[in-house]
């Protein structure tokens, strides 16, 4: 069996736990239970005819990325940085985290998820900002843990990238 460790990074309340719950259990809850430390989930997937399991490390979010315990990142083979579209400072934090993650574990696949797409009316993250990301070659998904939009797709493509990477 092949296992891959994936970390979920991002400010608090951006929806890391919600995305994992949507992906692993196909559920969503409006309740906000802030994660303390780290919560580990697992999902068995198959890609390219191979079975393997993703071990998802859902880390607690902090205000300042500097506080995030990057030692949890050790051994990760892929990661997501998650931002909340309705709060643009979380996008800035996510980009910082992305840099810090690469500095810590090297060039492993890592995607940006801009979450809460179902609330797009209230988004502070503008199309201009998104264009900017594309220009910098940062791959992102507009996701919604609530509707499930692009969640499966994001995880699957990270998994595929990790397998090619290996």
């Amino acid at each position: 069996m092949i296992s891959k460790k994936i970390c979920m990074l991002g400010s608090f309340s951006v929806g890391k736990t919600a995305l994992v719950a949507r992906y692993v259990h196909s559920i969503f809850s409006d309740k906000y239970l802030s994660t303390v430390g780290v919560k580990i989930s697992k999902k068995n997937v198959s890609s390219g005819g191979k079975d393997f399991s993703l071990i998802l490390w859902d880390l607690e979010g902090k205000d300042l990325y500097a506080d995030v315990n990057l030692s949890y990142l050790r051994g990760a083979m892929g990661f997501f940085t998650v931002a909340d579209g309705t709060r643009k400072e979380t996008l800035e934090a996510a980009l910082e985290l992305r840099k810090a993650a690469h500095d810590t574990v090297g060039q492993i696949p890592g995607y940006l998820l801009i979450n809460k797409e179902d609330l797009s009316d209230a988004w502070e993250v503008t199309d201009a900002m998104l264009d900017n990301l594309t220009r910098q070659g940062i791959k992102y998904f507009r996701t919604s843990a609530k509707t499930g939009l692009a969640v499966e797709e994001a995880f699957t493509s990270l998994a595929r990238d990790m397998l090619q990477n290996a």
Binding site: S3, I40, K42
Partner: peptide
């Protein structure tokens, strides 16, 4: 580093949880 279990054994009397999750948790 990864916390991924390379091998796992459990005694017969024991109902074993998912090894990968338990092991990752230990690492965490």
């Amino acid at each position: 580093e990864t916390g991924i279990p390379l091998a796992h054994v459990a005694s017969d009397e024991v109902y074993a949880q998912d090894a990968e999750m338990v092991s990752s948790m230990f690492t965490a």
